[in-house]
Simulated assay, not measured.
Amino acid sequence: MAIDVAPGLVLQESELVFTYILASGPGGQNVNKVATAAQLRFDAARSPSLCDRTRERLIRLAGSRATREGVIVITARNFRTQQKNREDAIGRLSELIREAAHRQTFRVKTRPGRAARQRRLDGKAHRAGIKRGRRVSSDD
């Protein structure tokens, strides 16, 4: 099965390794007996789905979630079921990859044209005239 992360970027389910661990938090007695927290491991350094630029940026964005070998570890324990925690972990990984794959558009600096400068000056002169008209004349 494939996971559609971004346009033109698809991860294979075989690239994800899940382990289930005991979770803290709500769940009553169940919390001590059932391993509901999902731990997702994704080997970003050796993933054939990622280009070099995305791979490097992903590992950098992952920060402390990435090991020295380039494996990203995401632990999801927000929900009471394995399935929901698994989906949460996949969603968080997808969001991280989407952010790494996004190319930022750089702003091209421009300057105002002659007409725009003239409009600005005309507006300032108009405003100054209005304020000049409000002054109280001292013709005593």
Rank of each mutant, 00 (worst) to 15 (best):
M1P: 10
M1L: 07
A2R: 07
A2D: 14
I3Q: 05
I3V: 14
I3T: 03
I3Y: 14
D4T: 06
D4P: 03
V5K: 09
A6D: 15
L9H: 09
L9C: 12
L9M: 13
V10L: 13
V10G: 03
V10F: 03
Q12N: 08
Q12A: 10
Q12M: 05
Q12T: 06
E13V: 06
E13P: 00
S14M: 01
E15K: 00
L16W: 03
L16S: 05
Y20P: 01
I21S: 04
I21N: 01
S24E: 12
G25E: 08
G27V: 14
G27Q: 10
N30I: 08
N30R: 10
V34R: 06
V34P: 05
V34H: 09
A35E: 11
A35F: 01
A37N: 00
Q39Y: 08
L40I: 07
F42E: 04
D43Q: 07
A44I: 04
A44N: 00
A45S: 05
A45H: 01
R46Y: 03
R46F: 03
P48H: 00
P48R: 00
S49M: 07
L50C: 05
C51A: 11
C51M: 11
R53E: 14
R53M: 08
T54C: 15
E56S: 07
L58E: 04
L58Q: 01
L58D: 02
I59F: 01
R60C: 07
A62S: 07
R65Q: 11
R65K: 14
R65W: 02
A66N: 02
T67L: 04
T67W: 04
T67K: 00
T67H: 01
T67R: 02
R68M: 05
R68V: 05
R68H: 05
E69D: 13
E69W: 02
G70P: 00
V71P: 03
V73L: 13
I74T: 09
I74L: 15
T75F: 02
T75Q: 13
A76P: 02
R77M: 05
R77V: 00
R77Y: 01
N78F: 03
F79D: 11
F79E: 12
R80Q: 15
T81Q: 06
T81S: 15
Q83W: 12
K84P: 03
N85A: 08
N85W: 07
R86Y: 04
E87Y: 01
D88T: 05
D88I: 01
G91P: 09
G91Q: 14
R92C: 08
S94M: 12
E95D: 14
I97L: 15
E99Y: 08
A100R: 06
A101F: 07
H102M: 10
F106A: 07
V108D: 12
V108M: 09
K109Q: 12
K109E: 14
T110H: 13
R111K: 15
G113L: 12
A115Y: 11
A116C: 12
A116L: 15
R117H: 14
R117T: 14
R117N: 15
Q118C: 10
R120K: 14
R120G: 13
L121C: 02
L121T: 15
G123N: 11
G123R: 11
G123F: 04
A125Q: 13
A128L: 08
G129N: 11
K131M: 07
K131S: 03
R132S: 13
G133T: 02
G133I: 05
R134T: 04
R134W: 06
R134A: 04
R135Q: 14
R135H: 09
V136F: 07
S138E: 11
D139N: 01
D140Q: 06
